[in-house]
């Protein structure tokens, strides 16, 4: 019996070792091939005087080159499509652990920013870093069971490999990061929602944001919440828009600003938009210009 037990132990130990090696190899390969922007923060390589965080309304709206040319400070766009605050808060926390140059942190606020998806968006970005406590916390907020098992059960992450992982590991090379993280949308108009709707909002995520703000300002960084322009036809469909804006307004205080562009004149001009909530390249350039001017005032305050 003792001999058999010994055999079982050896079998399981070797299995664990093999699984660990495969997991390590995949994570390593993945970290090298995944989005430059994400990896650079995780490797503590990205640092700028103006850092912009948020979803696609940051990624596709805030042009760092225009913002830099007007403010005189270098800027970097850390926006990712489909990511809301609960998910990128881990990235902000990670950035704060090493940053040295940041003067202003802009948090782009779309109307779903204080809600969350049922599943993690872009798990391929976050899963290889499940061992990082900041990333783990934001993962855990969205999918607690999956996050826990990814971190603590050897081999579990392997069961989450999907198309995104396979194609990135095998085929894709990370795209060149030539625009400081920014990418413009096309001029084609693609309206989607037509019925009025209530944007996702969860009080505890607002409380999470509320708790995060002092950790940023404590490092001497100014925080600017900004809602970019929303096409008038789409804005009136958002039933809880005012309530959400008031939530952001309530955060304004020392070193914290709130800029609302939903009443800007460009909101009425469909030529600036790709869809109801996203500006096209032309609109993004115009907006970045306006925003940079407002930001300059804040910087000099």
């Amino acid at each position: 019996m003792r001999k058999e037990l010994k055999k079982i132990l050896i079998f399981l130990s070797l299995l664990l070792a093999a699984v660990w090696c495969i997991q390590f190899a995949i994570d390593t390969a993945y970290k090298k091939r995944v989005s430059n922007k994400f990896t650079k923060v995780m490797k503590h390589q990205t640092d700028a005087e103006i850092m912009l965080f948020g979803s696609s309304i940051v990624y596709n709206h805030f042009n760092p080159k225009i913002i830099s040319s007007i403010t005189g400070l270098d800027a970097y766009n850390m926006g990712f499509s489909g990511l809301f605050f609960v998910q990128y808060s881990g990235l902000i926390k990670e950035y704060l652990t090493y940053q040295k140059r940041c003067k202003v942190m802009v948090i782009g606020c779309d109307f779903d920013n204080l809600g969350k998806n049922e599943f993690m968006t872009r798990p391929d970005l976050f899963l290889p870093y499940a061992g990082n406590s900041n990333i783990y916390q934001s993962f855990y907020e969205i999918e607690p069971r999956k996050a826990f098992m990814s971190r603590y059960i050897p081999g579990f992450k392997l069961t989450l490999l999907n198309k995104a992982f396979y194609t990135r590991i095998i085929i894709n090379q990370p795209a060149a990061d030539t625009n400081s993280g920014y990418e413009a949308l096309t001029d084609n108009w693609e309206a989607t929602k037509k019925e009025p709707f209530t944007s996702r909002y969860q009080e505890h995520i607002f409380e999470l944001l509320q708790a995060t703000v002092p950790t940023i300002t404590a490092k001497g960084i100014k925080v600017v919440f900004a809602i970019p322009p929303v096409y008038t036809g789409g804005y009136k469909l958002i039933l809880n828009a005012e309530m959400i804006k008031n939530k952001y307004r309530s955060l304004v205080g020392k070193n914290v600003w709130f800029l609302d562009y939903t009443t800007d004149t460009m909101c009425a001009n469909r030529n600036y938009f790709h869809n109801f909530t996203h500006l096209n390249g032309q609109g993004a350039a115009l907006f970045s210009h306006t925003f940079a001017q407002d930001l300059t005032k804040i910087i000099h305050e």
Partner: peptide, 17 residues
């Protein structure tokens, strides 16, 4: 054992979950 490992690792790596 190699055969058992192959099956277990295949379940983890190429299984559909």
């Amino acid at each position: 054992w190699g055969f058992y490992y192959l099956l277990i690792i295949s379940i983890l790596l190429i299984g559909v979950y």
